[in-house]
Design a protein around this nucleic acid. Sequence first.
DNA 1: CTGTTAGCGCTTTCAT
DNA 2: ATGAAAGCGCTAACAG
Lengths: 360, 360
Amino acid sequence: MAKKIRIKDIAQMAGISPGTVDRVLHNRGNVSPSARQAIDAVLKEVNYQPNIHLSSISLRRSYKLVVTVPEFEAGEYWASFHKGVKRAMSVFEHINIDCKFMYYNQFDLYSCRSVFKEISEMAVDGVIIGPTFRDETVFLTNILEEKNIPYIYVDSQIEYTFPMACFAANLYQCGYLMGKLIDMITPADSHFVLFQTERVGDASANTTILRKQGLMTYLQEANLHTNLHRLSFSVGDPERNEALIGNYFEEHPEVRGALVLNSRASVIANYFERHHINGVKLIGIDLTDSNIRALKAGRIDFLMGQRPEQQGYLGVKTLIQALIYGTKDQGGYIMPLDIIMRENVDLYQEFSDIAFVEGK
Amino acid sequence: MAKKIRIKDIAQMAGISPGTVDRVLHNRGNVSPSARQAIDAVLKEVNYQPNIHLSSISLRRSYKLVVTVPEFEAGEYWASFHKGVKRAMSVFEHINIDCKFMYYNQFDLYSCRSVFKEISEMAVDGVIIGPTFRDETVFLTNILEEKNIPYIYVDSQIEYTFPMACFAANLYQCGYLMGKLIDMITPADSHFVLFQTERVGDASANTTILRKQGLMTYLQEANLHTNLHRLSFSVGDPERNEALIGNYFEEHPEVRGALVLNSRASVIANYFERHHINGVKLIGIDLTDSNIRALKAGRIDFLMGQRPEQQGYLGVKTLIQALIYGTKDQGGYIMPLDIIMRENVDLYQEFSDIAFVEGK
DNA sequence: CTGTTAGCGCTTTCAT
DNA sequence: ATGAAAGCGCTAACAG
C-alpha cells in the first residue's frame, strides 16, 4: 500500500520548498521555469491527490458563483436542484462561496435574455446554467469563454458550446426507455398518445425533441410507430383541454398508454381522474410533489427520476474543485435514469437525504 | 445565517479551555463535574457539529474494524459491497482504520460459526456484519453487546438484536414490488413461477422468506395468488434441472412470468436460453456480472438493485463516526429499491462511480 | 522568485 | 483536572 503523498513530500523530492509546490499546483504564478520543471517532473512520477477538505480550511480567498436556472415554486423540479446546491455549500462550509441565484422565466425568452445579459457583465468565478433558450445561452457562454470563466450545465446542455462539465440525464435514452416501459405494461399492439403541452414561446422544445426522438426510435424498432397519436394541450387554455379530453379516449379505445415528456404528467393524471378515464397507463418525468401525489394515488404508473438534487450538488462541487485546483476537463457526466413507481417512491425519497454521503 | 460554531467558541462560552471541551465531546474522562456541567449547558444551547474531515487529520489513534460477510468472487453482490468499504477507507484516508475482512461460507453453518467465534474473541472497536445464519449471528452479537462493541448490519438484519445501525433493503417491499412488476408486464391473469434455488444448509432462507411474503401479499391483493407456481431448483444437481425445465413451460403455457428471489436469476435465464423458452418474463435481484449480462442480452427483464456499494460505504462511515464521536443511535436506514432494465443499466453502473460524492 | 511562517479547526501530549 | 502548545495537511501572506 503506497503511502499517501503530501505536498511536503513533493517538495522534498523536487528539492524545493512546499510553498513553491503549492504555487505550481494552483497555477498561482511567480515560479521560475526551473522550479516548475523540477516539480512537474515529480508530479508526473507520483499521483498527488489533494484533499479538498483540508484545502478548504486553509483557503482564504472566496469564490463568487452564479447559479442561473428557471424560476420555481416549492415542490418543483428546480426546487430539488436548489436543495442540492445548498447541500454542497453546507458540506464545503469552510470554503467561502458567495453563490448568487439568478432566475429567469423559462416561458419568456426576454426574461432569460436580460438575466443572461446581466450575468455576462458580472465579475464572477464560475457559472452554473440550467439552460432553456439556445441562442440566449450561446450568447452568455460565448462571453464566459472569452472571459475564461468556467461554466457548467445542469439538466440539459446546448450543443456547440464548451462547458467544463455537464450533469444531465440522457434525454434521448429517457424517451427510449419510456417507450419501452409503456410497451411493456400495455397489451401487445396497443396504441399510445403523446401529450404535448404547448406553451407560448416554449423553447424547452429542445429537451422535448430529444426525448421524442428516443421514443420514436424505440417505437420504430418495436414496429409500433404507427400506433402513436399526439394530443396537444395548451397550459393556458384549460377549458379547451377539458373539452378535448372528454371524448378522446372514448373515441380511441385502442389507446392504452399515455406519455408526457416533461414534468407535467400530473396535469394529465388529474384530467384522467376527473373524466374517469381508467385503464390508460401513464408515464411521466420528474418527482415533483404533484407527480408524486398522482403516482401514489395510482394515477401515474411510472416516473423517470433524474436526480436533480445530485445535479446541483455535483455542479457546485465540480465547479469549486475546478476553481481551486485549476482542473480543466471534468468531462460530462450523465445521470442515471431512475424508474420510480408507487412501490419504491418512498424509499427513494427518504434515502436521497442520506445518499449525500459526505462526512458530516 | 448563524455563524458556524467551533470548539473554541464553546470553550469561550463555558469559560473553559478548548482541550477540556474536546475531552467532554469525546467522553475521554478526566473532567471535573463542574466543567462538564458548564460545557453540557453550552452544548445544549448551540448545535455543534464537528467536521469529520478536520477531526480526521488530527486523530492520532487508530480504529480496528472487522467486516464479516460471505465469501465472494469477482462480479458478485458482495464484491460491490467490498468496493464500497474500500471507498470509505480511501475517503477517510487520514483516519487510521485497520479493517480486517473475515469471510465465511454462506452455505456452511460451521464455517460461519467458527469465523464468528474467532471474531468474538478479538479485540476490536467495531464490527460490520452481513448476516446469514440467525443463531450464529445472535451468538456473536450477544458477546459484542457484552463487550460494548458496536456493530452494524448490512444487506439484512437479524431480529431481536441491537445493531447501532443497519443498511439493507426492505425485503418485504422488494418482493411486493417484484410481484407488481411481473403483473404489469404480463397479460392479465397470467400465471407465474417462482424459482426456488434450494441449497444444502441454506439459511439465507431468512431473507428469501421475507421477500416471498411481500410477493404473496401483492398477489393476494391483486387476486392472483392462485396463479403462482413453484419450481425447486437445486444448484448442486444441474442434470435434474435440465430435465425439469425442459418440458415445464411446454406443459404450462399459461405461465408467462418467472421470479427469482435471490441473486441467481442468470442461472434461470441461461436455462431459458438453452431451452429456447421465449415469451416468459423474468425478474431477478442484484446487479451481479452474470445478471447484467443476461439483462443486456434481453433474457432478464428487470433486476432489483439494492446499492451494495453504498451499504459498504455507509456502514464504515457510520461506524467510524460512532467511534469517534460516541454517537449511539444512528438508526436503521433502508436502501432504495432500484429498478434496472436493459435501457438504464449502463447509466446506473457508470454513475455509481461518481455518486460517491465525497470531496476528493 | 522563493523559503519561512502563521493559521484554518481539531486532537492530544505535556506540563502544571 | 486543566490550560497551553504542538501538529495534522494545506494555503497565503510576508520578508527577503
